[in-house]
């Protein structure tokens, strides 16, 4: 066994990951705050007013990164799930469980800001656009995952069942996305695409990327906090938790 592999498995155990996570949280939290401030400054103040859409378009600086993150977080959950099923590491299931609420939050944020943007642009809160519809279904997938995990009492079973569901979901997400687009073209519904804002300027792209990084840092910080709580809950009786409590 190589040296690096040993190290990797060392951090896969809750007892050694708990303090590591604790040390990492402040860095990611402050990165999220700083990047978020810069991103909002670019988005709300620095970027020029759009000729056609006026000031209302500025919501995309939250909307687009939130949509990206909601899809990305689901992929990460599937990654942890595959790892957990293959190597039976306890940490994987905890990470998946810790990420799910944040992913659902971003999916909801994306839907909400989409509706807020849609009202002035299209005159309707909801349009059966392919992206919006897929986002809604992704939100349902998150809710299903959270509901399944919270309905199972035994944490080991909850982890495995959740991991299977996440993997089944991630196989389905591209199929669902494709089928919804197919459906949309058949019915010739609203063809306005949100991310294809007219002539996306460099500053807009930069603003969105910085916001995406901020959301990313936020996700990591929150997931680490949540995973620490999950670890304490699940391993209350173990030695390392008692040691930590007395420290």
């Amino acid at each position: 066994m190589s040296h690096s592999l040993v190290n990797w498995f060392k951090y896969a155990s809750p007892a050694s990951f708990y303090p590591l996570a604790g040390r990492l949280i402040p860095y990611f939290a402050s990165a999220a705050a700083v990047l978020g401030a810069i991103g909002l400054w670019i988005g709300l103040l620095f970027a020029p007013t759009d000729a056609q859409q006026g000031e209302g378009y500025r919501i995309i600086f939250v909307h687009v990164p939130a949509s990206w993150m909601s899809m990305f977080v689901y992929c990460i959950m599937a990654f942890w799930s595959a790892l957990g099923l293959a190597f039976k590491t306890r940490l994987s299931g905890m990470m998946t469980a810790a990420l799910a609420p944040t992913g659902a939050l971003f999916a909801f944020l994306s839907l909400w800001t989409g509706a807020l943007w849609g009202k002035p642009m299209w005159g309707a809160w909801w349009v059966w656009d392919a992206r919006l519809t897929s986002q809604l279904i992704l939100f349902f997938l998150y809710l299903g995952f959270i509901a399944l995990q919270s309905a199972i009492d035994d944490p080991r079973r909850a982890d495995k069942a959740g991991a299977l569901l996440a993997l089944v979901g991630v196989i389905n997400v591209p199929i669902i996305y494709f089928s919804v687009q197919w459906w949309n073209t058949l019915h010739q519904g609203a063809s306005v695409s949100m991310t294809k804002a007219p002539s996306m300027a460099h500053t807009m792209l930069a603003g969105m990327l910085v916001m995406a990084l901020a959301f990313w840092a936020y996700t990591i910080a929150i997931a680490l906090m949540r995973v620490r709580c999950i670890m304490l809950e699940r391993e209350l009786s173990s030695e390392w938790v008692k040691r930590n409590a007395t420290e």
Binding site: I137, F140, L141, L143, G144, A147, L148, L165, V168, G169, N172, I175, I176, F178, S179, V180
Partner: peptide
Amino acid sequence: LLILPLYIP
């Protein structure tokens, strides 16, 4: 809740 979204395609 789990299955209906997967039935969409």
